[in-house]
Design a binder for these strands. Structure first.
Lengths: 113, 113
DNA sequence: CAAATACATCGACGGCTGTCAATGCTTAGT
DNA sequence: ACTAAGCATTGACAGCCGTCGATGTATTTG
């Protein structure tokens, strides 16, 4: 509810996501929204997201174990979630630390409200 | 006369959708949730859903125009949304009438709250 | 500097998915 | 009964996606 119709087409995460229920979606809005939902449309990514949400910050090396996937696969999924703006990563030393972006999740939630 | 038969697909689900943010998701919960998000991970389905939400009931024949897709494709997407429990269809005469399932959307919304 | 660690990228493979033409099924109208 | 309309299903094709081994890059450690 902070930001509303800025209608920026850019991939830059800004005033995201027109509402699905308010009025018929334009093709571009629908495409953008679908991209975000697609980020959540994978079991591994959902579990990854829940693991990151469980703590304030999580290292990629911590994820490889619980998710039972190879390192490239973990990297692939973190990138997918980051591209969607749902998590952000910060590299400190050798480690990559991830944390969720609550606003982004809220925006997605608003899209189906 | 005007026999009404519900088409609601059995979404074998109790109180759907564990929360992503509350605690680490189990594999089965994640798989189930991912299936629901996947239903929203397509531009055509999102626009279809918004069209159905715009009115109380919408006939399939009404959708073919605005979505600019073939009849089999429309049928494919309505089935996908119905399988996810997001819409329900009722056949009256020759026409298939669809409406959204607000509770289902709410459940999905709660999953990322 | 050299070795080791954490992560990203690349290339390839298999499976899934959106799309449409063709076909079948059910219902309405004549 | 015949015809037309609305929708579902099938089969086929192209494109996308998840996965992993191999390799590359950056950073720490000895």
């Amino acid at each position: 509810m902070a930001k509303r119709q800025a209608v920026a087409v850019g991939v830059t995460d800004d005033a995201c996501c027109a509402s699905v229920l308010a009025a018929p979606l334009s093709e571009s809005d629908a495409t953008e929204l679908a991209r975000l939902f697609a980020a959540l449309a994978d079991p591994v990514r959902l579990r990854l997201l829940s693991l990151v949400a469980a703590t304030d910050e999580v290292c990629s090396c911590t994820l490889e174990g619980p998710l039972a996937k190879s390192q490239p696969t973990i990297s692939h999924h973190t990138k997918a979630l980051a591209d969607a703006g749902l998590i952000v990563g910060e590299k400190r030393g050798r480690w990559m630390w991830w944390r969720v972006v609550p606003d982004r999740l809220a925006a997605l939630r608003d899209a189906i409200s």
